[in-house]
Design a protein around this nucleic acid. Sequence first.
DNA 1: CATACTCTGTTTATGCCATACACAGACGAG
DNA 2: CTCGTCTGTGTATGGCATAAACAGAGTATG
Lengths: 261, 261
Amino acid sequence: MQNMAETTDTGLPRAVAIAWGMHEVPQRGPSRGLSHERIVEAAIKIADVEGLAAVTMQAVARSLGFTTMSLYRYVSSKDELLRLMQDAALAGPEKLKLPGTWQEALRAWAATVRAAYRAHPWVLELPRGQIAVLMPNSVRAAELGLAALQSLDLRDDEKIGVILVVSQHVASSVELEQNLREEGEVAIGAEGIDMLGEVITAQRFPHLKPLMEAGYYVASEDRGGSQGRAEPDSVDAEYDFGLDLIISGLEVLEQRSARTT
Amino acid sequence: MQNMAETTDTGLPRAVAIAWGMHEVPQRGPSRGLSHERIVEAAIKIADVEGLAAVTMQAVARSLGFTTMSLYRYVSSKDELLRLMQDAALAGPEKLKLPGTWQEALRAWAATVRAAYRAHPWVLELPRGQIAVLMPNSVRAAELGLAALQSLDLRDDEKIGVILVVSQHVASSVELEQNLREEGEVAIGAEGIDMLGEVITAQRFPHLKPLMEAGYYVASEDRGGSQGRAEPDSVDAEYDFGLDLIISGLEVLEQRSARTT
DNA sequence: CATACTCTGTTTATGCCATACACAGACGAG
DNA sequence: CTCGTCTGTGTATGGCATAAACAGAGTATG
């Protein structure tokens, strides 16, 4: 129910048609005071500054100097607006100088995807499904990713898999970063950590307990010690770590298939 | 603002304290007609059947035969209830027979995490941040994951990284599966695909275009052909593909560090 | 050029939601 | 017994998406 997705008569979801620029604008009536572009732009600005939850039809309309209901002349539902925002926020470089080896190229591609997510982290709160993947900027990103993998000797469906796995890793990493930042303000104090230490005992959690005490598992406020604050660096580290693992795995896969061929 | 997270006097978020069973229940007044457990259970049942959006305070209360406001005697906000649901839904096997090699063990661990997410896919709609990670079942899962990696020769912080990357991959995979299922009902017909073919041209998308025509990129309804329906299998394939890449990468990393040591 | 039809932006109204607040009664501590 | 605390409830508020009806703008057709 919450997922109507409003298909046009062409069978395409309206959001897809709009984003690709196919969409008959009416000729008959009075001239329009707004446009999809302006609405989406205003909505994105709100999301960037105040978060996705602050994007209400009222807020968007007010920021444009129109009434709430006027938006519905351009967008058939809030869901549709969100889809358009998602795509518009993911605009990336049309062309990208891709380094020589596929490893470097894949890394560069991942970096652009990461940058896009980081610029508009609220994008990650929206579902990334079939429809999202058909939007212009997703398609452009996929094209670019495939270009990066050109020299990698894999089957086509495997390349799609690589694109998917890498972009999911990037998304997860930024999502984590974001969740930590948002909850960081409510950081658990030393007192709370002590409290947890009573239930997270060495008997019940033999492997985890030492890591927790070393501060690897939770980012405590400071824990009397000095380093603490694992927030910004550790997420970067996790991003690199995961990407390195994937690339290493791909190198193995490539060698294997080369041997087979 | 949307993220109050209600800390107790101990400095721990209330949800964490409740989930771990530390929480002074009042002695003075009348006996209580409800409990956290019953409320969370009822809410989970609703989420399983009707989706997370159907979990309203009203719906939960009604299903228990109480009024909406009565829930607030047990749970300080809906957010807190959602956190408790998230944790309760991720209950897994306390002990797990872990196969010999770390590869097999890691795979088995990932499978249990995947099963948990699949049993309650709405869990993925909730933020997975610092607080979520401190809840009992997350801690148990981490312990189990570390146990699986016991024989893997890596530093402790690297092992945490592995746990993180793998669980993120699993989550992403199930999330994708879910998004596809939900949008699958609105599948794009052949007519829509043709429409897209006009904007997704071979000139602008030289790498992607052939894959789209081969049906690798989008799951069209049937496309006149026969195979189509890439939905269930392809997600499984993506899951295995990503996990294999990570494990391969880990093997390389292990050899490298063994050489260094 | 007049008329009809379409499309605009607005006003108003509905139903759902989380949750603040105040109350009557239940119950244990003193 | 009585006081203070806690329970479950009723009522009220403000925010939300969006349906419906309307007055006027503008274009196409006679």
